[in-house]
């Protein structure tokens, strides 16, 4: 999918549209063609984490910022759903959409403060925010269930679909894959939009962009909010699939995993973190079946990828396609 970010208005090319349609069909096809429920479940979980990593990747690509606290945005909507649903104040669908909107709004407001700083300082701030959410999740027992977690008492129907659609691996694979395709489309269109152009320019030289007459704080905060919103969409799917959320969901190690996925895939193209998530997930499963030291092997793999392919799988793909100019964040991916 391509859009002209300089001509005012999106232009979607036919080959791009066909590629996107083909990608969107992969998940549903897998749901029908893969007979193993276990594999379907793994694919569903990998797809959810791919959406998480995609959100982290948007922040790296567009803002050049690395977050160590995005798990907060992954788990927050789940906690909102779990806390508000029993009150019966509004339809469950509205609570889900409200949870997403609240997360994005919170990220925007937090972003207005923290995107002013760069590099390590920004990373530490996101870590602090993430751990603050984790502490809240563990200590507010009445609301969150503390360390025991919170079971979500979901209704029998959601968005007109039976609840089992969201909790059986095969059907949930279709749902999560379609959401992933939608989020990828959003990420592509954003990157190719004039707003995406502006955020890339700010990433490269914020002062220079200010000299051109732009105020740069709000665009950076909005990109942070978009990144959180995409992550939150993954979190909502996680909550629906498991009907459960626990503090581990918002722990910094979950943020670290998503970051590893994004780096493994490379953030210089929107599809990179998605590819990284699937690689990470299945590498973890494959190695984990042989040894309990799977994390060490993942760590070594990450070192190798970072040294040999600093731009991740996207960089490898670009190397295999000579003459293809790597768009954007070569220095951040």
């Amino acid at each position: 999918m391509e859009a002209d970010r300089t001509g005012g208005g999106a232009v979607v090319t036919v080959p791009g549209l066909l590629l996107f349609a083909g990608f969107a069909l992969v998940g549903p096809a897998a749901a029908f063609l893969v007979p193993s429920t276990l594999i379907q479940s793994l694919l569903t979980q990998a797809t959810i984490y791919a959406i998480f990593a995609l959100g982290v990747g948007i922040l790296i690509r567009q803002n050049g910022m690395v977050s160590f606290g995005h798990a907060a945005f992954f788990g927050l909507p789940a906690y909102v759903i779990g806390a508000v649903l029993p009150l019966g104040l509004m339809p469950p669908e509205l609570i889900i959409i409200g949870g997403l909107a609240a997360t994005a709004l919170m990220a925007f407001l937090v972003g207005l403060v923290i995107v002013r700083v760069h590099g390590i300082a920004f990373g530490m701030l996101t870590l602090a925010i993430g751990q603050a959410v984790y502490e809240a999740a563990t200590r507010l027992r009445g609301l969150t269930g503390g360390h025991d977690g919170l079971s979500l008492d979901l209704p029998r129907f959601l968005f007109g679909l039976p609840l089992k659609t969201f909790q059986q691996p095969g059907s949930m694979l279709i749902v999560t894959w379609l959401v992933l395709a939608l989020m990828l489309a959003v990420a592509f269109l954003f990157a190719k939009s004039r707003y995406g152009l502006l955020s890339e320019a700010i990433r490269d030289n914020e002062e220079r962009v200010r000299f051109l007459g732009y105020r740069t704080l709000v665009p950076r905060a909005l990109t942070f909010a978009l990144s959180a919103l995409v992550t939150a969409a993954g979190g909502v799917l996680f909550a629906l699939y498991n009907a459960f959320v626990s503090p581990e969901t918002v722990h910094w190690t979950a943020s670290g995993s998503a970051l590893i996925m994004a780096i493994l895939g490379g953030a210089s193209a929107p599809w990179g973190p998605v590819a990284g998530a699937f690689t990470y997930f299945f590498l973890k499963e494959a190695v984990g079946s042989f040894t309990t030291h799977w994390l060490s092997i993942i760590g070594v793999s990450l070192i190798v990828v970072t040294v040999v392919f600093p731009a991740g799988l996207v960089g490898l793909f670009d190397r295999l396609r000579p003459g293809n100019r790597s768009q954007g964040a070569a220095n951040v991916g």
Binding site: R5, T6, R194, L197, L198, E200, A201, D204, N205, R208, V209, F211, L212, G213, Y214, Q327, G328, A329, A330
Partner: peptide
């Protein structure tokens, strides 16, 4: 200054490195 109609070509030109010629111009 830029918002008040004063455009500046800074020393060293300040070309945005990851953007194309067209994209650099559009941002002006």
């Amino acid at each position: 200054a830029a918002r008040a109609g004063i455009a500046v070509v800074v020393q060293g030109r300040g070309i945005l490195p990851n953007l194309t010629v067209r994209e650099n111009l559009i941002l002006g």
